[in-house]
């Protein structure tokens, strides 16, 4: 993540003398270690190079997989490894990266008392398959990801906005959506005021 600069460089820096412009040092990175266990070996055996990495950071384990392998892995984890509780589905936007979004699935297993994350990187416009066939709870969680990031899940039974008004333009949690931005036409038409700011 160190190579992901903020889209709006707003970190105020002290005025630098023009003679010696220095590149800011890269931000420190939390140490990450490879994650190895019986589970990762089983996953490696079953999915091979579809899983790109197994990592532990801050004592929390996650794996990064190719987008098309996500649903099979979720299904495998649920049926074979007792990860039967999908805690959360969310996304992170990295607009400078070719694969723009990180899609994050947080999983928990009651039987193992273990929490892992499944991550995948997807480009803009890619329609990841829905996880609703594996976990019912993905329904609203994926709708929220669609609402906030504009990631459309293919095969989702009800791919509509959930928190924002249905006709709203833009996806608020994308990094290129300024915090001051709003759908002014919608605000004028529906609220009868010039601006909501």
């Amino acid at each position: 993540m160190a190579d992901q600069p903020k889209p709006e460089g707003k970190a105020p820096t002290a005025p630098v003398p023009p003679a010696a412009p220095k590149a800011p040092p890269p931000p420190p990175q939390a140490p990450a270690t490879p994650w190895e266990s019986g589970l990762t070996r089983a996953l490696k055996e079953r999915f091979g190079d579809q899983i790109l990495e197994f990592t532990a950071q801050h004592g929390q384990e996650f794996l990064v997989a190719k987008p098309e392998a996500v649903i099979p892995i979720l299904g495998y984890l649920k049926s074979e490894a007792a990860f039967d509780y999908l805690v959360d589905v969310t996304a992170v936007d990295y607009p400078k990266r070719a694969e723009r979004f990180d899609l994050v699935y947080v999983l928990y297993s009651f039987a193992r008392n273990q929490r892992i994350r499944l991550k995948t990187r997807i480009p803009e416009g890619y329609q990841p398959p829905t996880a609703t066939d594996v976990h019912l709870t993905a329904d609203w969680l994926e709708r929220e990801v669609f609402d906030m990031f504009g990631i459309e899940f293919s095969g989702h039974p009800n791919m509509r906005r959930i928190l924002m008004p249905e006709e709203w333009e833009g996806y608020p949690l994308r990094k290129d959506y300024s915090i001051l931005r709003q759908d002014e036409a919608w605000v004028r038409q529906n609220l009868g005021i010039e601006s909501a700011q």
Binding site: M1, P27, P28, A30, Q57, V87, V106, R117
Partner: peptide, 11 residues
């Protein structure tokens, strides 16, 4: 407060 780059899920 400037945490090193990384991510956590805490509940």
């Amino acid at each position: 407060i400037k945490p090193p780059a990384g991510e956590v899920y805490v509940s």
